[in-house]
Write a protein that binds this DNA or RNA. Structure first.
Length: 497
RNA sequence: GCCGGUAUCGUCUAGGGGUCAGGACACGUGGUUCUCAGCCACGGGACCGGGGUUCGAAUCCCCGUACCGGUACCA
């Protein structure tokens, strides 16, 4: 089995296309097949190398590597359409020679007028065939005179084109509604339906798996295969990805590109897992299916037939799962850019990474995305007793809890650093004994004094994180005040008795 | 307009001539005796409409309707 993903490099990789790429990749991986990556850059105005590179980066980030294609090579290259122009030209000449295609000199204005006329008369707006019967001599003369020409396929009329779609079954089209479409544009570039067929045929693609928006291109492409006498591949059309309002997913729905999801801190395994289950189901209500399992179990027959709404909430839930099971040091690495952006880290030293690996998982377990981790770790790097007490409810609570704060400061002054959750719990128990307070009236003031925040992660996790951070020296991290210093500062800021 | 496709909780879906129509996300309630988040438990919530076939239709057939795609010298 040989499959391909062939995006046009005109922007970032959209999640809809990413899913198409994923399904193709899964098919190849699951069948020991070959995944070909081709770039369709014949629309010169919209294509760019930057887009191509970003698509490549996004595919690699998702873990979708290709066996043949751009930046990798292979026996069926080149893999960039702009480098295959000579191939399309030769094939256009071939069809011209056999009379399967002809040159057309109609101007854009004529074509538009024909179209309007057809529409107003309720006819199908297809090419009228004005140049269909021009003699070759005439055509050659006009071309030599410098008249711009396109090459059109001579579409046989009165035929029925049927193909068996692996997702939807038999689909039928009448050629009567298909006009003689353009194969080669007047600028010499091939049109989509022509280039695709030549590439897929020459690259020996066996299964064309693409979006549903290509269904009506399929009969045209089948006609091109037929004109060359080539055997057509098997087709499978995937349902589209929609936004919450059932319109095609677009920027106004929020993030739509893989790059954006990466930047917001979604893990690649979460995106691929989510995308695979949008339109395909493993069956028995399974929701978490890692990439390797997907490759083993994915099949086109159980791909759904209807378009799916991209649900960011569900993606977030999947991401949370992978965040919880992610390796701590990987998590630490992935969080670095976000901490740098927050201004709490310049360059991560191995020492910093070790520290982060110990604390980041606790923060990661309670957020949707990596992007939100700095906020959960704010208590480490951005402690300010004054600022905390600036909140009136915090000040009131702290004043009422002065005995706890005094006992806390005293315990911290005399005791060792609280490097473990046990050490913290024992210290808290001593404060409870000293004050006779427990529960909320004990712990909440401690939270306020040591983290500077009314909410946050469990204290027996937060406090050791503070203490370990305070013990760090000469690292790239923003300095972290220790618990004892915080308790003193908090009491100071609270003012006299 | 014409051509093609699609239709199960708000969303992703399982199922499929007789089921309490199952799961997940989201939502609501409760629990986790510091809080937020998380996590756990429980709860409400669906077969597009109309005909037909049948003892029986959400399931099969037909007709509508809605939505999506195409109808280009975009891909």
């Amino acid at each position: 089995m040989r499959v391909r993903f062939a995006p046009s490099p005109s922007g970032h990789l959209h999640v809809g296309n990413a899913r198409t790429a994923l399904f193709n990749w899964l098919l190849a991986r699951g069948s020991n097949g070959t995944f070909v990556f081709r770039i369709e850059d014949t629309d010169v105005a919209r294509s760019s190398r930057e887009s191509e590179q970003s698509i490549i980066d996004d595919l690699r980030w998702m873990g979708l590597t290709w066996d043949e294609g751009v930046e990798r090579g292979g026996d069926h290259g080149p893999y960039r359409q702009s480098e295959r122009l000579h191939i399309y030209r030769a094939h256009a000449v071939e069809l011209l020679a056999t009379g399967k295609a002809y040159q057309c000199f109609c101007t854009a204005e004529q074509l538009e007028a024909d179209r309007q006329a057809a529409l107003s008369e309720g006819r199908a707006p297809k090419y009228t065939g004005r140049c269909r019967d021009l003699s070759r001599q005439d055509a050659r003369r006009r071309v030599e005179a410098g008249e711009p020409a396109v090459v059109r396929l001579r579409v046989p009329q009165g035929r029925e084109i049927v193909f068996r779609d692996l997702v939807r079954g038999a689909i039928t089209f009448e050629t009567a509604i298909i006009g003689d479409f353009v194969l080669t544009r007047s600028n010499g570039y091939p049109a989509f339906n022509f280039a695709v067929v030549i590439d897929d045929a020459l690259m020996a693609i066996t299964h064309v798996v693409r979006g549903e928006d290509h269904i009506s291109n399929t009969p045209r492409q089948l006609l091109v295969y037929e004109a060359f006498g080539w055997r057509a591949p098997t087709f499978a059309h995937l349902p589209l990805v929609l936004g919450p309002d059932h319109a095609p997913l677009s920027k106004r729905h929020g993030a739509t590109s893989v790059a954006e999801f990466r930047e917001r801190g979604y893990l690649p395994e979460a995106l691929t897992n989510y995308l695979a289950l949008l339109g395909w189901s493993p069956g028995e209500g399974e929701e978490i299916v890692p990439l390797e399992d997907l490759a083993r179990r994915f099949d086109l027959e159980s791909v759904g037939h209807s378009a799916g709404v991209f649900d960011t909430e569900k993606l977030a839930w999947v991401n949370r799962h992978y965040l919880k099971v992610a390796d701590p040091s990987r998590l630490a690495q992935l969080t670095v850019p976000f901490l740098v952006r927050a201004g709490w880290l310049s360059g991560a030293t191995p020492e910093d990474l070790e520290y982060l690996a110990a604390i980041v998982p606790a923060a990661a377990a309670s957020v949707d995305r990596l992007e939100q981790i700095p906020d959960r770790l704010r208590f480490l790097f951005d402690y300010s007793a004054e600022q905390s007490l600036g909140r009136s409810d915090t000040r009131a609570e702290a004043e009422a809890a002065r005995p706890v704060l005094v006992a806390l400061a005293s315990e911290l002054r005399h005791g060792p650093p609280l490097l473990t959750r046990e050490a913290f719990r024992e210290m808290a128990a001593r404060v409870r004994t000293a004050t006779g307070l427990k529960g909320k009236s004990l712990f909440h003031p401690i939270r306020l004094a040591l983290t500077g925040e009314p909410e946050g992660m469990e204290l027996d996790l937060a406090v050791p994180a503070i203490e370990r951070g305070a013990g760090l020296s000469a690292s790239g991290l923003h300095p972290i005040a220790g618990a004892s210093a915080r308790a003193e500062a908090f009491l100071d800021a609270l003012g006299g008795s």
